[in-house]
């Protein structure tokens, strides 16, 4: 069996993370539960005085949207990177 026949052309989907910084209350759920360690809490404060997350390793994001679904503040979401976007980097 040659795996390439089935999977060779497939690439992992990539995501682009959008953080609405001033909506964040700094609970850290997204940072903790990102399975790819894409996010980290920043040292900066947002308008409300919380530390919002920032994207540390966007290349690792596989568009699972877990951060989007776990965020209690609706402050983070992920869009799918189209292939050309991925190629452009």
């Amino acid at each position: 069996m040659n795996q390439k026949i089935y999977f060779g052309e497939l690439k992992a989907t990539k995501g682009e993370i959008h953080i609405i910084r001033d909506r964040c209350k700094g609970c850290g759920f997204c940072v903790e539960y990102c399975p790819k360690d894409v996010l980290a809490l920043s040292d900066e404060f947002n308008i409300k005085g919380y530390h919002p997350p920032f994207v540390e390793n966007e290349d690792n994001c596989v568009y699972c949207q877990l951060c989007e679904n776990i965020c209690p503040e609706f402050a983070i979401f992920v869009t799918k990177k189209e292939e050309e976007d991925v190629e452009k980097g």
């Binding site: 209350k25 700094g26 609970c27 759920f29 919380y50 989007e68 679904n69 776990i70 965020c71 209690p72 503040e73 609706f74």
Partner: peptide, 11 residues
């Protein structure tokens, strides 16, 4: 509150 899970359930 920060860390409350209700928002997550709403999502």
């Amino acid at each position: 509150c920060p860390g409350c899970g209700i928002g997550t359930v709403v999502t």
